[in-house]
Design a protein around this nucleic acid. Sequence first.
DNA 1: CTTGTTTCTGCGAATATTTCGCAACTAGCG
DNA 2: CGCTAGTTGCGAAATATTCGCAGAAACAAG
Lengths: 135, 135
Amino acid sequence: MAEQHELRDKGLRLTPQRELVLAAVRELGHATPEEVAEKVRATHPGINLSTVYRNLETLENVGLVQHTHLGHGGATYHAAEELTHLHLVCGTCGSVGDAPIDVAANFVQNLADDYGFKTDVSHFAIYGLCAACVK
Amino acid sequence: MAEQHELRDKGLRLTPQRELVLAAVRELGHATPEEVAEKVRATHPGINLSTVYRNLETLENVGLVQHTHLGHGGATYHAAEELTHLHLVCGTCGSVGDAPIDVAANFVQNLADDYGFKTDVSHFAIYGLCAACVK
DNA sequence: CTTGTTTCTGCGAATATTTCGCAACTAGCG
DNA sequence: CGCTAGTTGCGAAATATTCGCAGAAACAAG
């Protein structure tokens, strides 16, 4: 089964920590490194925060996870498979909503046509005010 | 002349440091707090980095400057008057290009119509690959 | 199953970035 | 000129992330 060896397929060693980090990212949807560490510690308390950082970076290099900037400083990670939506961050209440990537299709096309810029809309969040806070 | 008192008009005291920070932001276009401090130190060496941070925050509160997230961690500041473009950040070469806000008009409208989300497109950079790196 | 090589992990320290507390200072008002 | 409140400088604290290193573990080979 390829699933059991997806890490090996990428040329990585299959360590429990690494599997746990990947599993945590997939379960959490979006999460900061800190949150991933917390999740992993539920089943494997000894894991070190440095290891989480290193694995997130490694997993990102092989394309299994990606990170997005949702706000002020911290990056949040999610599984690459879920990279099909963009993030609507409300500056007032802090909520993070999702929207399908299609709503930006037009915009992405404009940038491609006018500037030759190939946009990855999901890498940065879209900032503004959510419907609730507009009121 | 209102220009000489724009800070006072906002209820702020007119200190040399504050004027210098504002002037630096305006001259630099975009700049990190660190870069602003460096610029200010050219004419006023004794200024403290804390002061720069505090003034950027204060100036932002009264609407004279705003910050944008251009990448990994650091925020970059620019004068509010220039807030008429969005930032195209290239993930490969790191360049930051500008584009008029109109190219996103469509997109913003979509989000407003479908999600009631009032977007501030310029707060976060638009990430992707610039024309040069696409090749 | 043993061995060897290379990649990981844990840990603590080092960095980087931003915030805070506090005492001294000064802009603006009368 | 003198007062009061907003500001500054400075060092320390809080965060967030990276790094160096020694020991441990994974995988390939014999």
